[in-house]
Nucleic acid binder design. Structure first.
Lengths: 253, 253
DNA sequence: TAGTGGTCTAGACCACAAT
DNA sequence: TTGTGGTCTAGACCACTAC
């Protein structure tokens, strides 16, 4: 990565800068390597730090870089494939899924979720919090909303309200016959709460996967899972997990 | 939206600002309405324009706002659901899909696609460009990569190289028996080319859907579709298209 | 304590759309 | 021509990490 001079160009500086850096990452850096700090890089390219940062932000959004305050900017490994959907539909918490129940509370769900549940307003809704770890890294945080009417046989509040209760709620849910499910993926930004769990700063880009579970002719549960967008590639395989990716860190833009 | 003063807070100003604006959008603005310009808004909140812009950027990322140079900042409608996967697998270009073929060229695919195709290096690959419009708005641009060996009966180059040829390639492809497919979704940023087609600026956030089509024991084609992340919610339904969303523009973060 | 990325400021100019 | 958002600058200080 020489002391490149930016030529006059019709395109913005940060865009050109991003291209130059991207090529340098492919050819002159290896995964995990630390880049020069932002002040040095900016000086080297003859731009203000804010401009350099604009380029770095783009590259981080694309999963090419990882920046950590107090540490530095490192070259990110290729995104990991994370299996999200198999065609056989199952309840959350079914045998050997990738999630680990963490907690369970009873509260009114956010308005958007209440709409999806089509439940009676003010009905009790169990909220199970789960987290997902892949290759030693937290990749997703999830909230499963289960209306009380979906788990009528659930023992009263005598069960403690921690992971044990979370498991109890999901276990009860499995007694219903699952008739189908429904998935949507959209871009979001991490709430302060999710950010903490995902080891990112608030506002970090996340992929939000919303799943509706249908049973007994209605929506029996709703799950909202937020995946780190920088490190994850969500896979919806029926050819399960053919997971290859080599070469010097290429990606289709 | 009064002349709110920002209190001392442990959280960044732009974060607090985003929250305040978000609430104002819910309560005091309706879809399509134009916000005051950035300089006025910044003055009203007593922050620098760059700080105000940081908040607006977040809100735009979440699909709450739409900004257009020379025009202004408007309140965005709720994201539209765009059907991406039905469980019955079909070839691209099958009866009545949502795509419109635009062009077809023969070129070497990008390295990442070449890996997926596992094709002989240097093999001819037809590249079909298609676009997708929903509710009068462009929502996605796609490139379908079809190795020449997947369409052996395709007439030579006597066919013109426009939309007609694109349709011809896809028609030939449908003669193969589709054995399965494979999907992945990840965050990306729009290339200059895609940005133009999606009516956005280069670098705009997009959801990249990569699909592999399997036939005759190998990868017969690969499709890379980029969806506008600001306006689209990708749906993977088997309960086809239960499309509801009301209420005053709420969203789960 | 030193060095990193994260936030913030107060300007300036540019590209684009509407008038 | 006017007004908008988009880009860019040259600083400053803060929060965090590692030593």
């Amino acid at each position: 990565m020489g002391t490149t001079q930016l030529e006059t160009a019709p395109e913005p500086k940060y865009w050109h800068l991003k291209t130059v850096l991207s090529e340098a990452l492919d050819s002159e850096f290896s995964v995990g390597e630390i880049l020069p700090n932002e002040r040095d890089l900016a000086a080297r390219f003859g731009v203000a730090r804010a401009t350099l940062r604009q380029a770095l932000e783009q590259l981080e959004l694309e999963g090419r870089l990882q920046r950590r305050r107090g540490v530095g900017t490192t070259v990110a490994p290729p995104r990991m494939g994370v299996a999200v959907g198999t065609e056989e539909h199952t309840w959350p918490g079914a045998a050997g899924d990738a999630w680990q129940p963490a907690d369970c509370t009873v509260a009114a769900p956010p308005a958007a979720v209440a709409d999806l549940l089509e439940s009676v307003h003010g009905e009790q809704v169990h909220t199970v919090r789960r987290s997902r770890v892949s290759r030693g890294q937290p990749v997703a945080a999830e909230l499963v909303y289960v209306p009380a009417s979906s788990v009528p046989a659930l023992p009263a509040i005598d069960t403690p309200s921690g992971a044990a209760r979370a498991r109890a709620v999901l276990r009860e849910l499995r007694h219903l016959e699952l008739e189908g499910q429904d998935r949507a993926v959209e871009l979001g930004s991490a709430s302060a709460e999710d950010a903490k769990e995902l080891d990112r700063l608030p506002g970090a880009p996340v992929l939000v996967v919303t799943t509706r579970f249908f049973a007994a002719g209605r929506t029996a549960a709703v799950s909202v899972a937020t995946y780190r967008a920088d490190t994850c590639r969500l896979t919806f395989g029926d050819h399960d997990g053919v997971e290859i990716h080599h070469g010097p860190e290429r990606r289709a833009s």
